[in-house]
Design a protein around this nucleic acid. Sequence first.
DNA 1: CGGACACTAAAGCAATCACTTGACTTTTCA
DNA 2: TGAAAAGTCAAGTGATTGCTTTAGTGTCCG
Lengths: 116, 116
Amino acid sequence: MLQHSHLDPVFHALADPTRRSIVERLAAGAASVSELAAPFAVSLSAIGQHVHVLETSGLVRTLKTGRVRSVELAPEGMASAEDWFASHRKQWEGRLDRLGTLLAEPDDDEAPSRSR
Amino acid sequence: MLQHSHLDPVFHALADPTRRSIVERLAAGAASVSELAAPFAVSLSAIGQHVHVLETSGLVRTLKTGRVRSVELAPEGMASAEDWFASHRKQWEGRLDRLGTLLAEPDDDEAPSRSR
DNA sequence: CGGACACTAAAGCAATCACTTGACTTTTCA
DNA sequence: TGAAAAGTCAAGTGATTGCTTTAGTGTCCG
C-alpha cells in the first residue's frame, strides 16, 4: 500500500471509461472543456473534474486562455504507462510459450518450507 | 459512463500498487497466494481479495490444487491493456512533433454559434 | 454597460474501495 | 486422529469516487 509510483494516478485515471474516452478524443487534437463535455450526459462540472484528474495524473496538459481552457494530451504521460508494460513484457512473454504448463512447477521459486 | 469495455477492470486493477507488485512478481513465474502475500504488511485475506480482483479483470489466472491456489499471469489480459495504448499511439505520437503548437489552432471545428 | 459564456469552487451524497477481524472449510502430515 | 496450514466467507469500517446542484469568478461581445 505504501511505496512509489506516479503510475497509481495514471492507471486510476485510465480506469474510468469517461476519462478514457476523453483521452481518445484528445488523441485527435486539443479541445476545450466544453467540447470534451459535449458527447457525455453528465454536467460540465463533472467533466471539469475528470480533466483535473487527468491533468494531475500527467496524462493531459491544460492552458487557460481567456475563459477557455484548452486541454491536450501529454504524450510523456501516456508513454510512462505504456513503458510499464514494456518493461515487464519480456518476462511474461516468455511464459506464453509454456502456456499449458501453468502451476505444477516443482521448484526454483520461493517459500523455503520453514516448518518442516 | 455508458458503453463497453473490459479495460475498466483491467486499469482499475493496475491502479493499485500492491496489485501491480503482485503482477510484477508473477511475471517471474506462478506463485501461491501465501507466497504472494509474504512481501506485504497486510493480511492474507487482503491479498486473496487482490488476487480475486486481478482474476476477474483477466490479468491473472488461478487454479486450486489441494489447499493451495496457484496464481499465474494471463498474458492475454496484459496484452489487452497494452493494446489500448498501441491503438492510439499513432495519433498522439503525431502530436509530439508540434508540441509547442498547442491551442491557438484557428481551425473550423468550433461550436456553431446558433444564437445571434 | 450588461448579459451570456466558459468554466470553477464548494458542499453533499450514494456507491465502491482496501482493508480488518473472526469464524469456517479443506487438506496435509506427524 | 487431530492439529496446523492455506485459503475463503462475511461483516464492518473509514476513506475515496463520481456525480450533483448551487453559487460564484472572470471574459467576451453587442
